[in-house]
């Protein structure tokens, strides 16, 4: 993949941005996410997570399946604020 390939379309993160962060010592998906915003956009990392994990694995010389996949934050699929205006009282 060319280093100006876009890894995260939601947040405009390039492969070269990811590589620069890994070169500076970051080692996990969660760190890459927090310091590049990769995976923080509307799709919540659906496309970029596997690409970033593959890049981390390559950088660290280990297998993807041996990496922490990174945290998944709810609600997973985005929901409008208006969906929470009725109900929700304690049972």
């Amino acid at each position: 993949m060319s280093s100006d390939a876009i890894i995260c379309r939601c947040e405009d993160v390039l492969l070269s941005d990811i590589r620069r962060l890994l070169d500076s010592g970051l080692t996990t998906f969660d760190e890459v996410k927090k310091f590049s915003r990769c995976g923080m956009g509307p799709c919540q990392g659906r496309t970029c997570r596997s690409l970033v994990l593959a890049e981390i694995a390559r950088h660290r010389g280990i297998r993807v399946q041996d990496l922490e996949p990174g945290r998944f934050r709810p609600p997973g699929k985005s929901i409008p604020i208006s969906a929470f205006l009725e109900g929700g009282e304690e049972q």
Partner: peptide, 11 residues
């Protein structure tokens, strides 16, 4: 006016 905005993540 912002109730149509979608919630992405909670923590």
């Amino acid at each position: 006016d912002i109730t149509g905005v979608r919630i992405l993540r909670q923590w």
